[in-house]
């Protein structure tokens, strides 16, 4: 799974397979991070708006 595991080889099979895997994982990770960070920002701006009204 990682280059430091001893059965790892820098061959075509590993590049394609692990490339696909890490690509998919990155997209999932990026999507989640985006949603979480944006929610925190939304919440803060919402709070500020609320304070502004008072």
């Amino acid at each position: 799974m990682f280059p430091f595991c001893f059965e790892w080889a820098w061959d075509m099979s590993h590049m394609v397979f692990m490339g696909g895997l890490w690509y998919a994982l990155s997209i999932i990770g990026a999507g989640l991070t985006f949603a979480i960070v944006k929610s925190i920002m939304d919440m803060k701006s919402h709070d500020e708006k609320d304070h502004g009204h008072h």
Partner: peptide, 11 residues
């Protein structure tokens, strides 16, 4: 909960 509400929306 505001955070969860936003999270649901953003997801």
């Amino acid at each position: 909960k505001p955070f969860l509400h936003h999270l649901s929306h953003n997801m």
